[in-house]
């Protein structure tokens, strides 16, 4: 058994670009443009990047909420062997829908206000034939307890709960089918900080107790550092760096990773931040610059970067998409002694 539960190979998702009745075809938005990575069994892989970099689209392609334009998503099923989720038809996909689930960012918009918790969490069990009748009630009750709610909450509607509790409901729904992989799309970014910590702790407990693998999409680097084993940094539809969390934060290899890390304000008035300010805005996914997509904003840019598109290649056991990865000495985030008070 290989240790990768999910292998993503050259995954692409382009939007638009269809030729209209008259005139010539517009250029497609290349939201996800050739992504390769392995998701290891039991790990939490972080996916970070600015808004519009395609991280949510990538998550949605993996659960097949979007149909990818190209590439493979190979799920290693312990019973049925490896299967390419991207190539399956809707019907063939049905059994695998159980295995890969998703938690959404917006805990209000993702729950149907006309359904009780019993219906929201119980419906997927009934549809997939996992439980019927009284068994559904028992299981829903158990799940609610597992995510820190109470059994008697199951007859209430989502509006009766706060943001943090609603996110717990979303997590219970994702767990209802005993999935192996959960794609968490910004699960805490809509929550207040004091509640955010509760949800992060809950996710970690769930992972420890049940054999779960997370793909954790986030833009808050503090959260990512706290929960993830490995981190992939995305820039306009591509991975620019993939490394162990500690390595990435201590010494990034890609200039974009460095800029991202340095931009986070330090919550300590005596530690002065030195953000490496980026020039301009994120590249346009419709009209990408030639050469390295990051070169117009990169301070380390040389002639080669303007013409030659770098490959995602291996450097010291880490993956990075930069011509100058070896020669640059980039600045990470200082490891400080943590204070528990």
């Amino acid at each position: 058994m290989s240790d990768a539960i999910l292998k993503v190979r050259d995954l692409k998702k382009h939007f638009g670009g269809k030729k209209p009745l008259f005139g010539k075809a517009p250029r497609a938005v290349r939201a996800v443009d050739g992504i390769d990575f392995d998701l290891r069994r039991g790990e939490t892989l972080g996916l970070v990047g600015e808004s519009g970099c395609g991280k949510t689209t990538l998550g949605r392609c993996i659960v097949r909420a979007h149909d990818p334009t190209g590439g493979e998503v190979i799920y290693d099923d312990p019973d049925r062997g490896p299967v390419d989720l991207a190539a399956l038809s809707r019907k063939e996909l049905q059994p695998y829908r159980l295995e890969v689930q998703m938690i959404f960012q917006d805990p209000i918009g993702s729950l149907n206000p006309r359904m009780t918790l019993l219906e929201i969490i119980g419906e997927p069990m009934i549809v997939n034939g996992l439980a019927t009748g009284a068994e559904v009630k028992k299981r829903v009750g158990d799940l609610l307890v597992r995510v820190g709610l109470r059994r008697e909450h199951m007859n209430r509607y989502p509006h009766a709960f706060s943001g943090g509790q609603r996110q717990r409901i979303g997590i219970a729904r994702a767990l209802a089918l005993n999935p192996k992989v959960i794609v968490c799309d910004e699960p805490v970014s809509a929550l207040d900080v004091s509640v955010q910590a509760q949800i992060l702790n809950l996710l970690q407990d769930l992972q420890r107790d049940g054999d779960l693998t997370f793909l954790f999409i986030a833009h808050d680097l503090g959260v990512v550092e706290y929960v993830c084993n490995r981190v992939a940094v995305m820039y306009v539809g591509r991975i620019v760096e993939l490394a162990e969390t500690d390595d990435l934060f201590a010494r990034p290899l890609h200039p974009y990773s460095e800029a991202l890390l340095s931009a986070v304000p330090v919550p300590d008035p005596e530690v002065e931040g030195h953000p490496h300010l980026l020039q301009g805005d994120v590249a346009n996914a419709v009209n990408l610059p030639p050469g390295c997509h990051f070169h117009p904003r990169c301070v380390y840019c040389v002639a080669r970067c303007r013409t030659e598109d770098p490959e995602l290649r291996e450097v010291n056991g880490r993956k990075v998409r930069c011509h100058r990865a070896e020669e640059l000495d980039l600045e990470g985030v200082a490891q400080e002694e943590a204070v528990h008070g």
Binding site: S194, Q196, A197, G222, V266, Q335, G341
Partner: peptide, 23 residues
């Protein structure tokens, strides 16, 4: 508030964040 945010560069492997109970 100060202790419920994961801070950059202060990775506490396996440690739990201190959360405020309730909402």
């Amino acid at each position: 508030l100060l202790h419920s945010i994961p801070k950059l560069g202060q990775r506490r492997a396996g440690a739990r964040l201190q959360s405020v109970k309730g909402g």
